[in-house]
Amino acid sequence: MKKRGPIIAIAGAVMIVMAASIAYSVMPKTSLGSGGGNFFPSPESLFDSVSDKVSIDAGNVYTFSHTVNAAQIPLMWGVHVVDYNPNDSVAISITNIFGDKFGSFVDNDPIFIKSFNVPKADTYSFNIENKGKEPITVVMLFTENPEQSKALTDPNSPFVKNILPLAEAGFLLIIGIIVIISGTLLGVLDWRKGKNPSSGRYV
């Protein structure tokens, strides 16, 4: 029983070593010959459909369209300001050909992502207004049924190859640290009880 603390601490150390091994196995793949530039996926790589880059002058509106061929499915969409500056701002409104409204948003960040369930198969218009003082270049991003998107299902996608293993390594690292701390505390308690037999029997 007196060895349970060290045993638990060793198990935590093994978890940390495993986490480091996973992280190490992922990192070199992207640093060799590419400078690591493709390690973290771009916003575009997380979507199945990406529009061409469009320049929008200050105060102007550009409308992107996306046709959904099925009803009652989630549509994840995003606006990416490619040449973002801190003073940039966009207003987004979503409509269909009948004029029905599906939301209005104002955003000051380089990328804005939302989703909604499309009520029916239709063509949806995403009206992007440049509310800043300088021209901006934007792309629209779309994915129907995000859980089945290529970014999550393609084993060769940057998300699956790089981000998921790192997330697993991070989770394993946190658990390992917690286990080591628990084992250390338990070892100290066992040591104190061993020094003072009158304190009672072990549980």
Results as ranks from 00 to 15, higher is better:
P43V: 10
G36I: 08
I73M: 11
P119F: 00
T137F: 02
I128T: 02
S45P: 04
L75R: 01
V82I: 14
T143N: 05
F112H: 07
Y84V: 03
I73V: 13
S65H: 14
L75G: 03
A70W: 14
F102I: 06
V61R: 15
N85F: 12
G59N: 03
Y124S: 03
E129W: 03
P110R: 07
S55P: 07
A58C: 07
L141Q: 11
P110Q: 13
P146S: 07
P110N: 12
S89G: 09
G132P: 06
S51A: 12
G36L: 09
A121H: 11
W77R: 00
E144D: 12
E44L: 09
G59L: 06
G132L: 10
G78W: 02
P119R: 00
F40M: 10
S51N: 09
I73E: 08
L46I: 08
N108I: 12
F116G: 00
F105R: 05
E129I: 08
D122H: 06
Y124M: 04
K133E: 13
V81G: 01
P119E: 00
S45M: 10
P74V: 01
P41D: 06
S42R: 15
T123C: 02
M76G: 13
S93W: 09
G59W: 02
D52A: 11
F98N: 10
G103L: 01
V68I: 12
I111R: 06
A91Y: 07
I111P: 00
V106A: 14
P74N: 04
E134T: 12
M140D: 04
N69L: 13
I136L: 13
T143I: 09
V61T: 15
A58G: 02
D100A: 14
V61M: 12
G132H: 06
T95A: 12
K114V: 07
D48A: 06
L46H: 07
P135A: 06
